[in-house]
Amino acid sequence: MSVQWKGVMPAVTTKFTKEDQLDLDLFAHNLDAQLNAGVHGIVLGGTLGEASTLSVEEKRELTRFTSKHVNGQVPVMINIAEQSTKGAVLAAEQAQQDGADGLMMLPPMRYKAGDRETVEYFKAVANSTDLPIMVYNNPVDYKIEVTLPMFEQLLSCENIKAVKESTRDISNVTRIKNAFGDRLKIMTGVDTLALESLLMGADGWIAGLVCAFPAETVAIYELQRKGRIAEAIEIYRWFLPLLELDINPKLVQNIKLAEVATGLGSEQVRAPRLPLVGAERAHVLEVIKTGLANRPELPDYKS
């Protein structure tokens, strides 16, 4: 199905059993909660999905399973995070075979590519596939920034459609809009800047805490889209302490704890990650407990 680069798209966590196998039953339970809340797409195998610990076959199994389970209700994207151009081209080919509707692409992993190398990397993959591509621009975590001049070159590839904007610079939304108008869709990728980015013109939100709180996340997007800004802000202010769990090196463990609290997941992570312990765990649990105790009653955001 075609991808409309707008709305809320959860970067879903990958569910594991205690035996460290994919837990597809629990994964399906979370997918159903996302769909029932009204999300607009699903993103697999990102940082939150523990992509760096997944085998190629596990990524392919997740893609095939999700595509079948979602059954055309929303588009399914898979993250491409490879060390070589050859590997990225192969991953894109496999994604298309497995039923993905689009790709989220990081710059080359490990090697800090220069601007020209980064552009050629994205172009090579774009020219190898029919799938639409969202460039993941996160220089804070991945040390390579895709600048406006680089995007100007990349947009010669018609299937490069969107950017996951995670520079942490809110004014970058305006810069992109000024430079490219609607040619490059903007999906904000930082939970704690999400509403601000949407109000400045971002088209959608690749979200993290949505994994545990799908309805609240979609409500914020839909309310601001309909001009009900005060209502969106009220929910967002309640949400912010929880959203801050996403901008943390232990975001996977944090969000999985939140999923446990809302009945949408388990605490199982894949080593070298380990479940939280001690004061760190107590702090996260207290944030979640406070959030649940004050959970807002949502308006009918779907109508």
Rank of each mutant, 00 (worst) to 15 (best):
V190Q: 03
P149E: 02
N172D: 15
K185I: 08
I176F: 10
F151N: 08
N178H: 10
M150V: 02
G181N: 09
I144Q: 07
K177Y: 06
L155F: 05
N178M: 11
A194D: 14
S156Q: 08
S171L: 14
R175V: 02
L154G: 10
Q153S: 07
L155W: 01
I176V: 15
S166A: 12
K177P: 12
L148F: 03
S197V: 01
K185M: 13
E152M: 01
M150P: 12
R175W: 12
N178I: 04
R175N: 11
M200N: 14
K164E: 10
T192L: 09
D169A: 13
E165H: 07
Q153Y: 02
R168D: 03
V163R: 08
N159W: 13
L193K: 06
S171E: 11
C157I: 10
L199H: 09
D169E: 10
I170G: 07
L198V: 03
M200F: 09
L195Y: 07
E145P: 02
N172F: 15
A194S: 15
D182N: 14
K177E: 06
R168T: 15
R168H: 13
D182P: 07
L193F: 13
G189Q: 08
L155M: 08
K161L: 03
T192W: 12
L195Q: 08
T192C: 10
G181A: 02
L155R: 08
L154W: 09
L154D: 05
R183I: 01
A179Y: 02
I144V: 09
K185N: 11
L198G: 01
N159Q: 06
T192V: 15
G189K: 01
E165G: 01
E158Q: 15
R168V: 13
M150H: 02
G189M: 07
S156W: 00
L155H: 05
E145D: 14
D169G: 02
T167P: 04
F151G: 04
S197L: 02
K185D: 10
L148P: 14
I144S: 02
F151T: 05
F180H: 06
Q153K: 15
V146K: 10
A179S: 14
K161N: 11
S156Y: 03
F151R: 11
P149F: 00
M150W: 00
E165S: 04
L195F: 12
G181V: 07
T188I: 14
I144L: 03
L155T: 09
D182M: 00
A162W: 06
K164M: 07
G189N: 06
F180Y: 12
E158G: 04
L198F: 04
S166E: 05
T167Q: 06
N178C: 07
R168E: 07
S166W: 02
A194I: 12
R168P: 00
L148M: 04
I170V: 15
L198Q: 05
E165Q: 08
V163I: 10
M200Y: 14
